[in-house]
Design a protein around this nucleic acid. Structure first.
Length: 863
RNA sequence: GCGAAAGUGGCGGAAUUGGCAGACGCACCAGACUUAGGAUCUGGCGGGUAAAACCGUGGGGGUUCGAGUCCCCCCUUUCGCACCA
């Protein structure tokens, strides 16, 4: 009690002042207005800048009209990084735009009778307002809006280039059709075989003539390029590898026995296991295989059976039950000849053969393939073993059965019953048998991919018109470059259902043939919106460019993107398409980089009560609501604090409150102490005060400050653990509160106090930029915080004088000793053994050894 | 079925290379200040015990002076792929 005399009865930090209350709304509105008034604050220097560049990019949103928490998290991460990189002295490009074509605008138009364009532009305005309110540091002078002709004309231009190079072509193909919407859906809008908007409406397949982009031309490069993308998550790279699905094998032709139809007298199969060809006991065709009807001929009962199979398959597809379908087949009563042994084997049609993979036909080897085995068992087909784990006559290894368990599929065994190839290893057999087939003209080595060409035609209104016309005389004719853009007409009645809305606009459809000038019909399909997002980030470098999509010189400076940030849901589609687009543009000579982005980060989802936020579940937390209650700083700071960025984040309102309390504490500390420090020059380190002149507590604060700078910096750039960055600052602020009695008693040199406050504010800038700006000004500092340098940590000042060693006995904590830092091991050992508790515990036992881990601990091993 | 990631207090999460498990925050408890407190400040807070001992990172084994961390087996959850020949 006695010492309380020295301390004011009501020390300042124990009082609630009305004037030191943290009012985020007052602060944020003030700075919001200033930032809006001066867009240059967040603008990147031009590409001819001598400064080193940093391009940080968040995936552009679809302008649905409201920002959700997932956006906020994504952008809070990107914004923290952008601000940090500015403070590291980089010229930072941090742009934002709108992926603004797409079906929701059309749906909204039908529902609310608002033109898609108007609906979209309103939404953009609303979301932009929300983003600005969050305080994101976007360079809006580079904003890209994909539904505007200035942008989409370049989609058309690229399309013409693709067409010129033979990378855009037209063919008949099946598309997803929702009868309820009366429109085509993108693959990603088909959920479990049903329409995403009408969850009980199965999507049907419709055959339509469509435009495709030849992504498969780059399959090999898209695959191998992944190996060099070290800054991409393994998960995403694996997904892309699987999607591309490269498979090495052989094409082998089997002659068809007997009469020959119009399609040919051979059937080609693709196999990765040509080494098992002596075990082939049937040929299996996909039901849609063109040979099927030829082989059936006029047999009505076979015809009916195959038809039935197709019908069943379609039904299963509609129900989304294709995977669980039982294997089913029909024998076509015809035979093929195995070119290796001349054997006649039956030809079947089977529902498990996919027409769009390989050749749509396989050789069936039941003994050595799971699916063929299941099928052969059901229909009693021959099962012939042609590979063994060991030589015939060799005894089985310990625990190995006498005969291999079928189906036996390993690739490191030996061939038997395979003519001249018997006794070869599988690997050797694959090479020799492929060569044999090639020599005899019935086969060759080949590579198959699962990746398919990208169908970009959409029978929708709200998209980029495909710049093609159809002329009776000249056929398919591209619109000449100088007549771009082909403008998307306004005032289109999209309530008319069925077919492309543009087909119902005569002014649009009726065109002149660019070649002959005669009457022609315009293409009325529009492009997939993934075209828009395949190259938008290049446009940010040259947003005003009018004669070209962008200036190559700007690309050379800014690209590749240093850090791309977005949701993992784009791992395949957008990220493959944009890699494809980059490679194509590189081959045109427009860019000189092979890949769009060197580093990719996929943040976790924002969930609430264990489930993804959704209107259906009623667990949506609105950013506006959070901002209204706690302010933008608390909201974004919580989004970074609550979990590491790659993990799912469980939104807890009490947590936002906690962060808000923390920011309040920072605010109040500086409000109370800014005056004491102002006037002192803390701007260049600790000024004139040396560490020795400080009181123990002041020295401790100085030490902790530098330790905190190190922790925040390391966690930020080393690991991207923003949660521990914020935690470290919290710890330091707690420490400051612990020292506040001494501070308010004037025992801290003003220089140190100024340095502490100044650096805390700088550390806070990436996480709570509004508050940081306000406090910066309160400290009488001037200028754009983003142009300030990130604080540097001083190892000498951070260094402890003493270190505490835990002392273990047989691995259990028994005591602690404190020794001067850098004490020699011998001294640490001596002090540990001299410790009373240790002595008592060790008493009467034999010390086997004493382990001293410098800077960590002491462990005494006794027996 | 295959592949990947994860499993730590009442909750979100820390522990970066094997070295004091539970930082920081929430919730809770106590105290201070108060006309008042859903404000603020201080302290406590894995289980267990009077206090220790002891037990604790999904379960079981192992390596090690020492394991949340490494190895083997198993369980659970999430995500991705799913007849790809």
């Amino acid at each position: 009690m006695a010492e309380t005399k020295d301390i004011p009865a009501n020390p300042p930090h124990r009082q609630a002042h009305t004037d030191d209350r943290y009012d985020p709304h007052r602060i944020e509105e003030k700075w919001h207005a200033r930032w809006q008034a001066d867009p240059s604050l967040f603008a990147a220097d031009p590409a001819d800048s001598k400064r080193k560049k940093y391009y940080v990019l968040e995936m552009l949103p679809y302008p649905s009209g409201v920002l959700h928490m997932g956006h906020v998290r994504n952008y809070a991460i990107g914004d923290a990084l952008a601000r940090y990189m500015w403070m590291q002295g980089y010229n930072v490009l941090h742009p934002m735009g709108w992926d603004s074509f797409g079906l929701p605008a059309e749906n909204a138009a039908i529902k609310n009778k608002v033109p898609p364009r108007q609906w979209t532009l309103q939404n953009i305005a609303a979301m932009k307002k929300q983003m600005n309110r969050m305080g994101f540091s976007y360079d809006w002078s580079r904003e890209v809006t994909t539904c505007l002709p200035e942008y989409y004309r370049w989609n058309q231009w690229f399309f013409l280039k693709l067409y010129e190079k033979g990378l855009a072509y037209r063919k008949n193909s099946k598309v997803n059709w929702c009868p309820e919407c009366a429109t085509v859906l993108a693959n990603e809008q088909v959920v479990g075989g049903n329409c995403w908007r009408h969850e009980d409406t199965p999507v049907v397949q419709r055959e339509l003539e469509q435009w495709f982009l030849r992504t498969t031309a780059y399959a090999e490069e898209l695959l191998h390029g992944l190996d060099r993308l070290e800054g991409w998550p393994e998960k995403v790279k694996t997904m892309q590898r699987n999607w591309i699905g490269r498979s090495e094998g052989a094409l082998v032709e089997f002659k068809i026995d007997g009469r020959v139809g119009s399609v040919g007298n051979k059937v080609a199969v693709f196999t990765t296991r040509i080494d098992t060809i002596y075990g082939a006991t049937s040929i299996q065709l996909a039901p849609e295989h063109p040979l099927v009807s030829d082989l059936i001929g006029n047999d009505p009962s076979l015809h009916a059976k195959v038809e039935e199979m197709l019908a069943e398959q379609n039904k299963a597809k509609e129900r989304g039950e294709v995977e669980s379908m039982e294997k089913h087949g029909v024998f076509l009563e015809r035979y093929a000849i195995n070119p290796f042994n001349g054997e006649k084997i039956p030809i079947w049609v089977a529902n498990y053969i996919l027409m769009d993979y390989g050749t749509g036909a396989i050789m069936s080897v039941p003994a050595h393939d799971e699916r063929d085995y299941e099928f052969a068992q059901k229909y009693g087909l021959d099962i012939r073993v042609v590979i063994l784990p060991r030589r015939i006559g060799e005894p089985p290894a310990e625990g190995e059965p006498e005969k291999p368990v079928l189906p036996y599929t390993p690739k490191d065994s030996l061939l038997i019953n395979s003519g001249e190839f018997s006794e070869l290893s599988n690997q050797e057999a694959i090479q020799k048998m492929t060569a044999y087939a090639e020599q005899h003209g019935f086969g060759k080595a080949t590579v198959t991919y699962r990746l398919k060409d990208w169908g970009i035609s959409r029978q929708r209104y709200w998209g980029t018109p495909i710049p093609m016309v159809y002329c009776e005389k000249d056929g398919v004719v591209p619109v000449p470059e100088d007549r771009l853009p082909v403008l998307l007409p306004d005032n289109v009645d999209i309530t008319l259902q069925g077919g492309s809305p543009l087909a119902r606009v005569p002014e649009f459809v009726n065109a002149k043939c660019p070649k002959c000038g005669g009457a022609a019909r315009r293409e009325t399909d529009t492009m997939d919106t993934f075209v828009d997002s395949s190259w938008y980030f290049y446009r940010y470098t040259s947003p005003q460019s009018s004669g070209k999509p962008f200036e190559t010189a700007n690309i050379d400076y800014w690209f590749p993107i240093d850090q791309y940030i977005g949701g993992v849901e784009h791992a395949i589609l957008h990220l493959i398409y944009s890699r494809f687009w980059t490679k194509f543009m590189r081959d045109l000579g427009l860019v000189h980089n092979d890949e769009p982005a060197t580093r990719l980060f996929t943040q976790g989802m924002v969930i609430k009560d264990g489930a993804k936020m959704s209107k259906n579940k009623g667990n949506v937390v609105s950013p506006d609501d959070m901002v209204a209650r706690f302010g933008a700083d608390s909201t974004r700071c919580y989004a970074l604090f609550a979990a590491p960025p790659d993990r799912d984040l469980d939104w807890q309102e009490a947590g936002v409150e906690g962060v808000h309390r923390f920011l309040s504490r920072v605010y109040r500390f500086i409000v109370r102490n800014a005056g004491a420090a102002n006037g002192a020059s803390g701007r260049n380190g600790s000024g004139a005060v040396t560490a020795e002149q400080l009181s123990p507590k002041a020295r401790q604060i100085q030490r902790r400050l530098h330790q905190t700078i190190k922790r925040v910096t390391d966690d930020f750039q080393g690991r991207w653990h923003f949660n521990t960055c914020v935690a470290a600052i919290m710890e330091f602020v707690n420490e400051l509160y612990g020292a506040e009695e001494e501070i308010s008693a004037g025992k801290f040199p003003p220089q140190l106090l100024a340095e502490v406050q100044r650096k805390v504010v700088l550390l806070l800038e990436p996480f709570a930029p509004y508050l940081a700006s306000e406090l910066w000004e309160m400290l009488c500092e001037k200028g754009n915080l983003l142009r300030q340098r990130w604080p540097e940590y001083d190892a000498a000042l951070a260094k402890e004088d003493e270190i505490e060693y835990p002392v273990q006995i047989n691995g259990k904590l028994r005591s602690r000793i404190t020794v001067p830092v850098d004490s020699p091991e011998d001294l640490v050992r001596e002090r540990a053994l001299a410790e009373e508790k240790v002595k008592a515990t060790v008493e009467g036992k034999q010390i086997v050894k004493v382990i001293v881990v410098p800077g960590k601990l002491v462990n005494v091993v006794v027996r």
